[in-house]
C-alpha cells in the first residue's frame, strides 16, 4: 500500500515538472508535438528507473563503505552519463525499433535534471532499494504525463491568435503555469 501511495504521490502530488521544476528544459523544448513528447516521456521513464537502481547501488555499495559519500554528485552524474550511453548502445543492438523511437532523445536525457534530481532525492530521503525504484517510476510517469498533456495543449494553441508579444515561449510558460495550478489541486491528497 505504501509503495502505491509513493507511486501516486510522484505522479500527481509532487509532480517533478509542475511543482518541483525538475526537467523543465525537455519539458519546454520537446513538447511541440504529442508524438515526440510521448517518445521523450517513455525514454525518461526508462532511464530514470535504471538510474534510480544504479545510483542506489553505487551509493550504498561503493560510496558508503568507502566513506566518500561527499562525492555523490560526481558519482551520480557519471553513473547517469554512462548509463545513458550504455542504454543507447544496447538498444541499438537489441531493439532497433525502440531505438528508432527513442534514439534522438536519449543523449538529451543526461542533462535532464529530473534524472539526477530523483537520484539525489532518493539518497537524501534514505529510501531503500524498492522505495527508490517506486519513487523513480512515479516521478518519471509524472513527467511523462505532464509532457504529453502539455504537448497536446500546445498543439491546439499553435494556430490560435495570441498577443504578438506572447508568441512562442511566453505562451508556453503561461500554459505550463495554468497546468501547474491544476496540479496544485492534488496537493494534500496523499500524505507520506
Amino acid at each position: 500500500m505504501y509503495l502505491i501511495l509513493l507511486l501516486l504521490a510522484g505522479i500527481f502530488v509532487n509532480n517533478y515538472v509542475l511543482s518541483q521544476f525538475l526537467g523543465i528544459c525537455p519539458f519546454l523544448g520537446v513538447s511541440k508535438k504529442v508524438d515526440t513528447a510521448a517518445g521523450m516521456g517513455m525514454a525518461v521513464i526508462f532511464v530514470i528507473v535504471l538510474a534510480c537502481a544504479a545510483s542506489w547501488l553505487v551509493y550504498n555499495l561503493i560510496l558508503v563503505p568507502l566513506h566518500i559519500e561527499y562525492l555523490y554528485n560526481i558519482a551520480f552524474i557519471l553513473v547517469i552519463a554512462s548509463l545513458v550511453q550504455f542504454v543507447e548502445m544496447f538498444l541499438k543492438k537489441a531493439a532497433p525499433a525502440l531505438y528508432q523511437a527513442l534514439g534522438v532523445f536519449l543523449p538529451l536525457i543526461t542533462t535532464n535534471c529530473a534524472v539526477l534530481g530523483v537520484a539525489v532525492l532518493n539518497m537524501q530521503k534514505e529510501y531503500n532499494f524498492i522505495e527508490s525504484i517506486f519513487n523513480g517510476i512515479g516521478g518519471a510517469a509524472g513527467f511523462a504525463l505532464a509532457i504529453v498533456l502539455f504537448a497536446g495543449i500546445r498543439e491546439r494553441i499553435a494556430d490560435n491568435d495570441t498577443p504578438k508579444a506572447f508568441d512562442g515561449f511566453p505562451m508556453a510558460l503561461v500554459t505550463a503555469g495554468l497546468m501547474s495550478i491544476a496540479f496544485l489541486g492534488f496537493s494534500g491528497l496523499i500524505k507520506l
Binding site: A165, L173, V174, A176, G177, I181
Partner: peptide
C-alpha cells in the same frame, strides 16, 4: 508558489 514562477517569467519575456 510554483505557478507564479511560470507566469512571472512569461510576463517578463513578453
Amino acid at each position: 508558489m510554483a505557478p507564479g514562477a511560470f507566469f512571472t517569467l512569461a510576463c517578463l519575456m513578453a
